[in-house]
Every structure is written in structure tokens, then in C-alpha cells.
């Protein structure tokens, strides 16, 4: 029963935490992600995206800043279209906290050996020879699913939308925010 409660809280902490409290906690995780990501060569170059590349501290924070701004702004605009009664601070706070699972990948990056890119171009299957890299890829799948679940619950609770309206609005908003973040990162970083 207790495990079920913990799992429920990890999947949807927003019934208890939202607004400024969620924003403060989320910002702490995001800053930590940016710092660790810069040193473990993990770049969050998209709202729900991660790649293992050599990046500077500035790049790491620029990527995360663009991700967060795109996610918050797109979800907020979507909220304005489909909902009437919600606060911007709830969107900002819950969306920031929803990025927290990616911290696991920043940490995992320290234990991952990056395969040589030129070698990968010659033979893509070489990546399977790096066990740590395969583990990182395997870990990234549940982490991304966890983060998407959090973004979904953040949107649902912040904007009070239900049913098919929620599902359709969420899918469109997530895809738009991912595409927008990719374009902005490509143009400005």
C-alpha cells in the first residue's frame, strides 16, 4: 500500500505540490541537471530529448533554458485555448518539476563511455559493444516516459481539463514544444 502511494506520488506529485513550491524544487533539479550534464556530456537538446555530446556549461544551460521556456509557453498557450480557469504559476511550477527525471540521465552520463562518432559512422552496430552506452539508452526510455507522464499530469491538474480534450491538447502541445525547442536550439545555440 505504501509502495503504491510512493509510486503514485512519483507519477503525480502535483496533487500536493504546485505553484511556487514546485517551481523552486523544479529549478533546483534543472540547475543540477545543467551542471552535471555539462560535465557528463549529456545534452538535453529538446523538451523530451537527450543526446550524448561534448558541451560547455553555457550550452548546457542554454539547452535547458530553451527547453523549459518552450514547454511552459506552449503549454500555457494551449491552456488559454482549452481552459478558462488556471494560473500561470501552476503551469510554470509543475512543468519545471516535470523535467526532474532527466537528472538521472545527467548522473548516468558519468558512468557512460561515449563511442567514437567516426567509428559509429563507419559501423553503427559498434554502439552495442559499449555496455554502458546501451544501459544509458535503455535507461533513457523509462526516464522519458516518466517525464512525459509528469508533463501530462502537470497539464491536467494545472488547467483542469479531462477526457479526449486533454489527450488531444496535450499531444499537440508536447509535439509543438519539442519541435519549437529543436528549431530554437538549432538557430541560437
Amino acid at each position: 500500500m505504501k509502495n503504491k502511494n510512493v509510486f503514485g506520488f512519483l507519477m503525480n506529485p502535483f496533487t500536493r505540490i504546485a505553484g511556487w513550491q514546485a517551481f523552486g524544487l523544479g529549478l533546483f533539479f534543472v540547475v543540477l541537471m545543467g551542471l552535471l550534464g555539462a560535465y557528463s556530456d549529456i545534452a538535453f537538446d529538446g523538451v523530451i530529448d537527450m543526446h550524448m555530446i561534448d558541451i560547455s556549461l553555457l550550452q548546457s544551460f542554454l539547452y535547458l533554458g530553451i527547453d523549459l521556456v518552450c514547454l511552459v509557453v506552449v503549454m500555457w498557450i494551449t491552456g488559454l485555448i482549452v481552459s478558462t480557469n488556471f494560473r500561470f504559476i501552476d503551469i510554470l511550477g509543475t512543468m519545471t518539476l516535470a523535467k526532474a527525471p532527466f537528472l538521472l540521465l545527467s548522473i548516468a552520463g558519468f558512468f557512460t563511455a561515449t563511442p567514437d562518432l567516426s567509428e559509429i559512422y563507419k559501423n553503427p552496430y559498434i554502439i552495442f559493444q559499449s555496455v554502458s552506452f546501451v544501459i544509458l539508452i535503455a535507461l533513457s526510455i523509462p526516464v522519458i516516459i516518466w517525464s512525459i507522464t509528469l508533463i501530462y499530469n502537470a497539464f491536467k491538474i494545472s488547467c483542469d481539463i479531462k477526457g479526449s480534450k486533454l489527450t488531444v491538447a496535450f499531444i499537440i502541445a508536447l509535439l509543438v514544444s519539442e519541435a519549437l525547442s529543436k528549431v530554437l536550439i538549432y538557430l541560437f545555440v
Partner: peptide
Amino acid sequence: KLSYPTVRNLLN
């Protein structure tokens, strides 16, 4: 011990 939007949603 609930978040503000959760309580507002219950009211809605």
C-alpha cells in the same frame, strides 16, 4: 495538504 490547483479542481 493538497496543492492549490487540486483544491480549485475539486471546487470546479
